[in-house]
Simulated assay, not measured.
Amino acid sequence: MFELEHTRIVDLPSASRIAYFEAGTEHRDAPPLLLVHGSLCDFRYWEPQMAALSAKRHVIAVSLPYFYPVTAPQGAAFGIQSHVDALLSLIHARNWGQVTLVGHSRGGCVAFHAASQDPSLFDRLVLADPGGKPAKPGEDPRPVAAIGADGRPQGAYAPEDPRMRAAAQVEAGDIDGGLEMFVDAVSRPGYWLRSAESFRTMARDNASTLPRQVRDTLPLYSRESASYVTIPTLIVNGDKSPPGFLATSETLTDWLPYAQRTVLRGASHGMNLTHASDFNREILSFIGA
């Protein structure tokens, strides 16, 4: 479905580039669905959603800067805020008006912060296993990166964390070994080997983003930032999703003013791939299609 000749690439004011693929027809009274991928993924991640959702709505799947098939110039920023800025810039540039924003995992973190920073652009929000953590009482939600002796950010996780070790393996050239360690850590053991070859190919295409990502300290969710998201919000989890995603989702369900939550039975972190019919049905029900 995702033929490169049908991909649109937009140059952004930040000197980054962002690609997107769209399907379906525009509806005068229905906002388009804008889908945001997570770690190691790109717009191809949403292939199980495109046919079902585009039958009812105009659907746009983006590849954030640095992710296949786009690149960013040397020295361009990589991080949650730069991706939020890119997403907001794209919506303004394409004059889509309000959109329904759907984000998975790290893309859920991007989607949340986009909606909290410019809520006028969105009519609804869907967060599927949103990445990141809520701030504790009195904790500053702004990211603070520790800088190592080499002048580089030391990373968002402890050195022994499997995500850091996975990034080190990728940098050392053991691409599949590092990807297996990372994917299994954020989903569940054995997920990489059970994944479809199309997913593994996509992850390999985006492996170079992993070392950058683990050095990106995520902003924490806060009750204050959640209070700005005054639009209907659906939070989707799998009942087998890792505990961290479930804990974050429970807190956001409590903090967001108009949130509801659904849990897909038998699903884990890659719920939109393994339980696509259930996932699509929840999305369509939420947007009233």
Rank of each mutant, 00 (worst) to 15 (best):
G148F: 06
P141C: 07
A145K: 01
G148A: 12
V144S: 14
G138I: 09
E139N: 07
L125K: 04
G132E: 08
P134R: 07
A114R: 04
A111H: 02
A115T: 08
V126M: 09
G132F: 13
G151R: 12
A114D: 04
A149Q: 14
D118K: 09
E139K: 10
G131T: 04
V144H: 15
P134Y: 00
G131Q: 07
P143R: 11
A115C: 14
G132Q: 06
P134Q: 02
L121A: 13
F112Q: 04
S120N: 08
G132Y: 12
V110G: 01
K136W: 12
R124N: 04
A146H: 02
Q154P: 00
G148M: 10
A135K: 04
A128M: 07
R142K: 07
L121T: 03
A114W: 08
K133C: 01
A128G: 11
D150E: 14
P153L: 06
V144A: 14
R142L: 09
A149I: 11
P130I: 05
K133L: 13
D140H: 08
S120Y: 00
I147P: 02
G151V: 07
V110C: 08
F122G: 05
G138S: 13
G132C: 10
A115L: 09
A135C: 08
R142I: 00
E139I: 01
V126H: 02
K136Y: 12
G148Y: 11
Q154D: 01
P143F: 09
D150Y: 05
K133Q: 10
S116E: 10
S116M: 05
R152Q: 15
A135G: 09
I147M: 11
V110W: 01
P130M: 04
D123H: 05
R124S: 10
D123W: 00
V110N: 09
K133P: 01
V126T: 08
A146R: 14
G131A: 15
Q117T: 14
E139W: 01
L127C: 03
F122R: 08
D140C: 08
G148S: 10
A135V: 04
P137Y: 12
L121V: 06
A128D: 05
A145R: 02
G148L: 09
G131K: 00
D150C: 08
P137K: 10
P153W: 02
F112E: 02
Q117R: 15
A111G: 02
D140M: 10
L121M: 11
G131I: 01
A114V: 03
I147N: 00
I147A: 04
H113P: 03
D118N: 12
V110F: 06
P130N: 02
I147T: 06
P134E: 05
G151F: 08
G151T: 09
D118S: 13
P137W: 12
R152T: 13
G151W: 12
L127V: 06
R152W: 10
P134W: 03
V144F: 06
P143N: 11
D129T: 10
R142N: 12
H113G: 03
A111T: 05
L127G: 04
D118C: 13
Q154W: 02
R124C: 07
R142F: 00
R142E: 12
R152D: 12
K133S: 12
P134L: 10
A135S: 15
A128F: 00
R152C: 13
H113M: 13
H113W: 15
